[in-house]
Amino acid sequence: MTFTKFSMAASLLAFSASALVPAAQAADFDDYARVISVTPQVEQVNVPRQECRTEYETSQRNYPRQQQAERSNGGAIIGGLAGGLLGSQVGGGNGRIAAAAVGAVTGAIVGDRVENNGNNGNHYNDQPSYESRPVRQCRNIDSWESRTNGYAVTYEYHNRTYTSVMPYNPGSRLRIHVSLTPRP
């Protein structure tokens, strides 16, 4: 009789354990469904970008005029004496006096230019100068891109059709989780 008491106790224990575990766990399983179609869900996204180029800008630059520099007369005096001496060596009589005078004037002009470097006393000239400098110019340009943000997947399972949006393309088969629960 101990054997029947033991088998009856085991049956009671098995029944009470099955009452604690929900019946839905036994009806959950994974299976595969046939994929009928996959449609990418595409959206247009603006990704602005910056386009830059370098251009050269030319501007005029006038140098400020400085005050008259002091001129030296030493060159004119020495040039005049040298020209007069050389001119007096040429010709005779009144021609000699004329040659000396022309030599003195010419020597004075040449001596003045050599001494004062031909700048007429100005440190800067009145001619404008031009300078070119690089200028970077940028602008924003709209750049539209197509992005796939998911896939509308239509699949068939046990002669019924379902559609879900998924983050990836599942291919020709879709793994699904099936859960069966009894209706009350």
Rank of each mutant, 00 (worst) to 15 (best):
Q60L: 09
R96L: 01
R65Q: 12
P134G: 06
G79Y: 10
L13S: 14
N46A: 12
G80W: 01
C138E: 10
I97G: 02
N149E: 07
A24L: 13
L81Q: 03
S72A: 14
D142V: 03
L81S: 06
N73V: 05
G121R: 05
S37I: 02
S172K: 14
S146V: 01
L180A: 12
A82H: 02
I77F: 13
Q89C: 11
T106V: 05
P167F: 01
V114Y: 08
N149T: 08
A23G: 15
G91N: 10
R96T: 05
S146A: 04
V35G: 00
A82V: 08
C138N: 07
I36T: 09
M1C: 07
Y168L: 07
V47C: 05
G150V: 01
C138D: 10
Y130D: 01
N159P: 10
M166E: 12
T163W: 02
E131H: 15
G84L: 07
N62S: 08
V105I: 15
G150C: 03
V178M: 03
I36R: 14
A26Y: 10
N120I: 00
A24Q: 12
Y56R: 07
R113L: 06
H158R: 15
G171E: 12
G79N: 07
V90E: 09
R34A: 11
D28Q: 14
R160C: 04
G92Y: 15
Y151H: 14
V110R: 09
D112L: 07
A100S: 13
P40S: 07
T2P: 04
Y151L: 09
A23Q: 14
R49Q: 09
P184C: 00
G83R: 01
N94F: 11
V21S: 11
R71N: 13
K5W: 13
R173K: 08
R113H: 03
V90W: 10
G121T: 01
N169G: 02
A9M: 10
W144N: 08
F15P: 01
F15D: 01
P48G: 02
R96E: 06
Y162D: 00
P128E: 08
Y56Q: 09
G107D: 04
F29L: 03
D112F: 12
G91E: 08
T163F: 00
V165K: 12
F15A: 11
D28G: 06
Y56L: 04
H177M: 06
L86C: 11
L85H: 09
T161N: 09
S179C: 08
A17T: 12
Q50V: 14
T163H: 03
N116V: 00
E43N: 05
E51M: 07
S179Q: 15
R160I: 06
V178I: 09
L174Q: 10
S18P: 05
R113G: 00
N140L: 09
T181L: 06
A27T: 12
E55Y: 10
Q68Y: 05
N119R: 05
Q68M: 07
T154M: 13
R160N: 13
A33R: 04
N62I: 04
G103A: 02
S132I: 04
P22D: 10
V135P: 12
V110P: 02
Q89K: 14
N149Y: 11
Y162R: 06
E156P: 01
T161R: 15
Y162W: 04
V21K: 10
D30W: 11
G93S: 11
G79C: 11
A17Q: 13
Q68C: 03
S132R: 15
R147I: 11
G118E: 02
A152W: 13
Y63E: 15
Q25K: 06
S143P: 01
R183Y: 06
M1W: 09
